[in-house]
């Protein structure tokens, strides 16, 4: 369960304070597929980053399974991410110096998993890239890179998967493929999936859709389709 209580995020922009998120509160139960939508600059990526503990709110609290992550230090947050969170980015963010297989291996090795290699192989198979495991990111297409990123995000069986515009850099066919892959994994592993997207069509497929504008929630509804 994710509980977001009255969070505000302001940043300095020149001489002024710019409010990115203003007094946002919401709860996301375990296993739910939530889409966060909104125009550029509405604060959706910031919200996602705050849930992942990648950044700290200016005020308010975020609780994950009852634990207040806003008071955690960097090491505590790293542990939280290692144990409970998976992340997929718009621009993939694979480590360029590692092969596809090694990129998937990393979170498992950080956790000190004994059967890391076997599990990474299985994940590579699940995203249908068995033959591309020894390739470096720059040798893969955008779609392939995002599939590696998804396999990496699911490597540690996260309770929560956070995806920031995962299809934004892909053509529609590849985008569709990636979306299906994520939702399939969400269904199979009962993962909470929070998807930030511009794509209304994709958002409609989620169980719940939250719309943001100027840092505020303007709608929060259950999708009939999702």
């Amino acid at each position: 369960m994710i509980e977001i209580k009255n969070i505000t995020k302001t940043v300095r922009s020149g001489a002024d304070d710019l409010t990115i998120l203003a007094d946002v509160s919401l709860e996301i139960p375990d296993g739910q597929f939530v889409a966060i939508t909104g125009a550029s600059g509405s604060g959706k990526s910031t919200l996602l980053g705050l849930i992942a503990g990648l950044d700290a709110p200016s005020s308010g609290e975020i609780l994950i399974d009852g634990e207040n992550i806003t008071v955690m230090n960097e090491d505590g947050l790293a542990r939280l991410r290692s144990d409970k969170l998976g992340f997929v980015f718009q621009s993939f963010h694979l480590i360029p110096s590692l092969t596809a297989f090694e990129n998937i291996l990393i979170p498992l090795e950080i956790r000190g998993e004994k059967d890391a290699k076997e599990r990474a192989s299985n994940l590579l198979q699940e995203v249908d890239l068995t033959n591309r495991g020894h390739h470096y990111p720059n040798e893969l297409s955008g779609g392939e890179q995002q599939r590696v990123a998804i396999a990496r995000a699911f490597a540690n069986n996260p309770k929560i998967l956070l995806a920031d515009e995962p299809t934004g850099n892909l053509d529609s066919r590849n985008g569709q493929h990636i979306f299906e892959l994520m939702t399939a994994l969400h269904d199979n592993k009962k993962t909470t999936l929070i998807l930030v997207t511009h794509d209304q069509e994709l958002a409609e497929k989620a169980e719940r859709q939250i719309r943001l504008r100027d840092g505020k929630i303007i709608s929060d509804k259950e999708n009939s389709q999702g």
Partner: peptide
Amino acid sequence: TVAVLKCLGADS
């Protein structure tokens, strides 16, 4: 790369 590693749960 460091940011990715931290994001994947490695501490500083």
